[in-house]
Write a protein that binds this DNA or RNA. Structure first.
Length: 539
RNA sequence: UGUCCAAUGGUGUAACGGUAGCACUACAGUUUUUGGUACUGUCUGUCUUGGUUCGAAUCCAGGUUGGACAACCA
């Protein structure tokens, strides 16, 4: 049980909020969701589920210049893909009328005023954390003048940036956010939902807590950087005398070799360092999905990293573990040769069908027939002319088992003029066919293969981490995170796959035996299937 | 020279005044027709100095270190 659940259980026991739990996930629709958001989604929806409560989806759309419907659609899709369904769908913009009324109310009570200072003047007047700020010369306008000005701001009479509405709290708080914070700014911008209705838009601090309040949120869970906003969150709830949800902060997720800033992810997309927001190398939820992560693996990851208030950097190997853990249970096994070399069984003639297991972890997945012939493709790395003690695959004179087939012995190899191996020759032992008594003979290894005449060509996309540095943001002077981009993060090559592996198959996740987990990419065509490598098998 | 928050193995996270546990990583071993899986084992930890107490990771005080805060962003 994490510390937030402890707080909730205490509240429940005390009968606070009528012993109800209502959370919300409040994304700003200005980018795609990433794995860090997944942690928050799992937390908020998970808590609602655990305590028989509700979780809303609310778009924090108070800044029309940055937001777009493209993002609200993708956000909804990602949440649902993760396996969650919100109780209510809301938008902060739905509350603009109410928010405006509340702003007037605060003006009436002498708790807010219109400030005509420029942005620079306001910034200078705010002071620095160690020293108090100075009051605005417009701070003590009459209520009537404030009301008049604010209404005219709303009516669109003033240009952008010419005036703001500020809360009248004080200029000497050690917390900068409490020094007469801005509530409304003038923005003659088109909003993706309210259109051109508004010429003024509320700031986060004058929208978020109130939105929580309107929705009857009991526990408003957010990340640590909002800790300094909490006094203001509380102040507005108190001043407005409205339902007061409890804000609780937790540490956001950080992953090594990864960036999580929406701005920087956007940069990668815009500058075409990746194929898009859903590039399999991206830490976005849609990227992970395209990479072949299952919803269960992402959920399990979020559960495993835990919730606390201390800064953390999670090792990406934990994410990969979660992928393997789930994929091992569900991925259909198949054989594929990614770096092929011809294997010729000189004493074999004809063709026969062998039986292959679809998933040793799940007998119900059944078996499939695979063709065996004289000429096969095998993995180049499964043979070595000179082998050290640690190498226990095929060598000249050595024996190895062909999975589901026979034990073979390498006799000799063919090379081209440059010394590259062009073919490996072997003989098979007919008595060692899979299932026969002699097939149990101990050999150094079992390797995978595909029949050369039957195998189909497929495009294989291999991924490495996007960044070379554990902390891509830890840059030398004059450099940026872009300088630590891994030039080899994407490798595209052709491989040979079993002929039975088609686009019609309902399965999306595969394990290429002895190699790793792969999934079918949406770039696949009838002519050529494209596979993304999700993660390799543990070595 | 400010305020707030945090500090437990390599990485995370438990233990709520009474045996420092779990997961990942790494490394061994057993099983295995995947160098996978499963199972077993090994390694490494309470930031520091005081105090309270029979007893402190836990409570208190100081220090140190890290983070957040000075957008008309969220």
């Amino acid at each position: 049980m994490n510390f937030i659940e402890e707080i909730i259980e205490k509240d429940l026991a005390n009968g606070k909020n009528g012993s109800k739990v209502h959370t919300r996930f409040p994304p700003e629709p200005n980018g795609y969701l990433h794995i860090g958001h997944a942690k928050s989604i799992c937390l908020n929806f998970g808590i609602a589920k655990k305590y028989n409560g509700l979780c809303n989806l609310r778009f924090d759309d108070t800044n029309p210049v940055k937001e777009d419907v493209e993002y609200v659609d993708s956000i909804k899709e990602d949440i649902q893909w993760l396996g969650f369904q919100w109780a209510e769908e809301h938008y902060a913009s739905d509350y603009f009328d109410q928010l405006y009324e509340w702003a007037e109310q605060l003006i009436q009570e002498g708790l807010a005023y219109v400030d005509d200072q420029t942005q620079e003047e306001i910034s200078a007047g705010r002071g620095v954390p160690t020293k108090p700020g100075t009051e605005s010369p417009y701070r003590n306008r009459s209520i009537e003048e404030n009301l008049d000005l604010f209404r005219r701001m709303k009516a669109g009479e003033f240009p952008d940036g010419s005036r703001v509405l500020r809360a009248k709290i004080g200029m000497d708080s050690p917390n900068m956010h409490m020094r007469d914070p801005i509530m409304y700014r003038i923005l003659h911008a088109h909003h993706h939902r309210t259109g051109d209705k508004w010429n003024i838009y509320p700031m986060y601090d004058f929208a978020h807590g109130q939105s929580d309040s309107i929705e009857g949120i009991t526990h408003s869970i957010c990340t640590l950087e909002f800790e300094v906003h909490r006094p203001l969150y509380d102040w507005f709830c108190e001043a407005l005398k409205i339902h007061h949800p409890q804000q609780i902060e937790f540490a956001r997720l950080n992953l090594n070799y990864t960036i999580m800033s929406k701005r920087k992810l956007m940069k990668l997309v815009q500058d075409k360092h990746v194929m898009g927001w859903d590039d399999p190398r991206m830490p976005t939820i849609c990227g992970l999905r395209r990479r072949g992560y299952t919803p269960a693996s992402v959920r399990n990851f979020a559960e495993t990293v835990g919730i606390a208030k201390r800064d953390n950097i999670i090792d990406v190997s934990l994410l990969e573990f979660c992928a393997r853990e789930d994929l091992n249970k569900v991925a259909t096994r198949t054989m594929a040769v990614l770096d092929p070399v011809k294997l010729i069984i000189d004493n074999y003639e004809g063709e026969e069908m062998l039986n292959a297991v679809n998933n040793p972890e799940n007998p119900e997945a059944g078996t499939r027939p695979i063709p065996f012939t004289k000429e096969l493709w095998m993995e180049r790395a499964d043979f070595r002319e000179v082998a050290d003690k640690k190498f226990y695959r095929l060598t000249i004179g050595g024996e190895v088992r062909l999975k589901y087939a026979y034990i073979i012995k390498c006799t000799h190899i063919d090379k081209d003029a440059d010394g590259n191996i062009t073919a490996i020759h072997a003989t098979y032992d007919p008595e060692t066919k899979s299932g026969m008594p002699l097939s149990n003979r101990k050999v150094k290894a079992t390797i995978h293969w595909v029949s050369a005449q039957h195998a189909k060509k497929a495009e294989i996309r291999l991924f490495e981490r996007l960044f070379l540095k554990s902390d891509p943001d830890d840059c030398e002077e004059g450099q940026t995170f872009l300088d630590s981009l891994n030039p080899n993060s994407l490798t595209i090559q052709d491989g040979w796959i079993e002929e039975g592996l088609t686009l019609d198959n309902p399965e999306r996740h595969y394990q290429f035996e002895r190699i790793g987990y792969f999934c079918i990419d949406r770039d696949s065509t009838a002519d050529k299937i494209v596979f993304n490598k999700t993660v390799g098998l543990k070595q």
